[in-house]
Amino acid sequence: MLAELSFYLWFMKKLFIVISIFFVSLVAQAHPFHVGVVEISFNSELKRFECAVKLFTDDTERILRNTYSEGVLDIAGANELPQVDSLLKDYLSNTLELSVNNKALSLEFLGKEGNADAIWAYAFFKAPEPFSTVTVSGTMLFELFDDQKNLIHWQTDEVKTHVLTEEKPAIQLVIQ
């Protein structure tokens, strides 16, 4: 009885160790999450869509460096390279697309601000012709992270939120 018990304990200890090692092999990440935020509203006086785009600074740094084969850009830092704004503008023109009546609108870049955590980029899309729906496509950072979620906050008299992912990168908004 004693021999069986001590064998049992030995076995359980070994099993415990093996299973623990298995758990350890699950690499511990510091809980990274991949999110972009786009606030869109329509300025009916100026007949344009006004957008504010928030992206994490480190992700933006990576994607601009990758896309444009650049070295350290120090986005929103003290030594930010002068080409950052135009690279960002180019990147957003290719990834944030608004279409009205099946025609793509062109992005006009206003500028950006931010810090080491996140940057906000401001842009507008002129839409002089009347329309009833607008299609928004936001594929920023999808090529870098397959779990990237870009949230669209469509602001009218209330805020309606949509989530864009690699599986569903575009949404159609109906204007009343």
Binding site: L15, I19, I21, F23, V24, L26, A28
Partner: peptide
Amino acid sequence: SWQLFVSGGAAFVALTLILDR
């Protein structure tokens, strides 16, 4: 046994998280 096994595994992962953070 389940209690110990789960706790052991969780403790180990928690330790790696702590060291990582």
